[in-house]
Amino acid sequence: MTSVAPPPARASADAAMLRDGFGRRIDYLRISVTDRCDLRCRYCMAEAMSFLPRRELLSLEELAELADAFIARGVRKIRLTGGEPLARRGLPDLAHDIGRHLKTGALDELTLTTNATRLAEQADALARAGIRRINVSLDSRDPALFRHITRTGDVAQVLHGIAAAKAAGLAIKINMVALKGLNEGEIPAMVEWCGAQGFDFTLIETMPLGVVEEDRTDRYLPLDGVRRALEERFTLLPETHRTGGPARYVRVAETGGRLGFITPLTHNFCEGCNRMRVTVQGRLYMCLGHEDHVDLKQALREGGRAALDAAIDEALAHKPQRHHFQIAGRNAAPAVDRHMNVTGG
């Protein structure tokens, strides 16, 4: 893969910075490299999914060029997502291209979210590319329950990938979507396992994105109640640690580990939003919970850097103040029609 030339210097660094209409500084970009995934998690995807034709995808070189443009505008952290990003051939090469900005100091961190099914083969290459920390989606360590939630998954394969990433020196955070009646009884054991392994652990409320076969009302588990239950078993201490995302952390005294909560429904966190998302089609979404987007593909292919900057500025002007996620009741329509794998986790 040919490296993209570094972005040209801008006349005014302050003028180039990304700031939305509510004064929020945007310094975190999530780039989805594919909408494809080898799992079919029940809360995330329909069992029979249609994926984008390959001709509609941005090339890895174009994704690297987009990253350059955002870094030139003040983005300090980039996360590679999907779908399952490791399903995209050449992903470590893209990480290497973007990772060169870590050496210059223009980028603070390059991270990855993965389901870890292909992590064992690629962990060393990711570490060489400059990735130092990854998030792994893992909703259960019980083989039968994991297969039920994912419809197809083998948890042993995932755990093998996690072990390989740990051996490669990558810091690991486990993300678990809290699902009523499915994995809620496993949460305390996951807290203990992550603490023993040296992994951070984050619980996430299910989000109403895309149409799925099951009613999300049946599985929605408010995390304020989960936290109260955990406080009966563990001592949760205040923690100032932040990763740039929406999680709010505590320290578990008994394990020494960090425990995070992502609560889009019970505690809206939009006032501090510093994020935007680019899909593999080149669509820039200003908010996960809104359909509004700006198409960067045409600007990238036909207009050059000036057109790309203008499109980014247009997106900033229309970034909403907040999402409006809610679990409104049985059989309610999702907040947006697109599934999480389209936008990127």
Rank of each mutant, 00 (worst) to 15 (best):
L86A: 09
A127T: 15
A299Q: 05
V177S: 00
E61Q: 05
C270H: 11
E109C: 06
D108L: 10
N341C: 15
A123Y: 04
Y220M: 02
S137R: 01
D27C: 10
N115K: 11
H96I: 04
D154Q: 08
A335F: 06
V294F: 14
K319F: 03
E192C: 14
G169I: 03
A178S: 08
F325G: 03
P7E: 12
T113Q: 13
V211T: 15
Q122L: 11
L300Q: 09
A156L: 07
V4G: 01
L296H: 08
D309S: 01
L91S: 10
L102V: 09
D68Y: 02
H96R: 15
P92Y: 02
H96V: 09
R19F: 07
L265G: 00
M49C: 05
D14Q: 14
V226P: 13
L58H: 00
K173M: 06
P238F: 09
F22N: 08
L170K: 10
T255G: 08
T243W: 07
T263S: 09
R88Q: 07
G83C: 04
E271M: 14
H267A: 09
R251K: 14
A46H: 01
L112C: 15
I134F: 02
E56S: 04
T240S: 13
I71T: 05
R89Y: 01
R301S: 11
V155L: 03
L102I: 06
P143L: 00
F234I: 10
L58V: 02
P222A: 06
A306F: 06
A67G: 08
S3V: 04
A87W: 10
V280G: 00
R118I: 02
V336E: 10
R132I: 01
V226I: 12
T206Q: 06
R25M: 08
T235K: 09
V158W: 01
R118F: 07
V280E: 06
D38E: 04
F269N: 13
R54G: 00
E214V: 10
L179H: 01
D35F: 03
N341Y: 05
T343H: 10
I134D: 03
Y285N: 06
H318Q: 09
E232A: 14
F199R: 11
G23M: 08
R227M: 08
Y43N: 02
A299S: 15
G105Q: 09
L236G: 08
F199A: 13
R76C: 04
I204G: 14
P8V: 06
A13E: 15
M1A: 10
R322L: 10
E62P: 00
A196R: 14
L29A: 08
F261V: 08
R275D: 03
Q281N: 15
A116T: 12
T255A: 06
G198T: 10
L126Q: 12
F261Y: 04
A299V: 09
A333Y: 03
L52V: 00
P143R: 01
L296I: 02
V4R: 01
I134Q: 03
D292Y: 14
G161H: 02
P238T: 00
T279A: 05
L265C: 09
G244M: 05
A127C: 10
G161M: 02
N183H: 04
A123P: 07
T104Q: 03
R76E: 10
D142L: 04
T255F: 04
N115D: 13
L300C: 12
E239Y: 03
H339I: 05
I134N: 01
L102D: 03
E232Q: 14
K180N: 08
A253G: 09
P85S: 13
P85G: 05
L296V: 06
R283V: 04
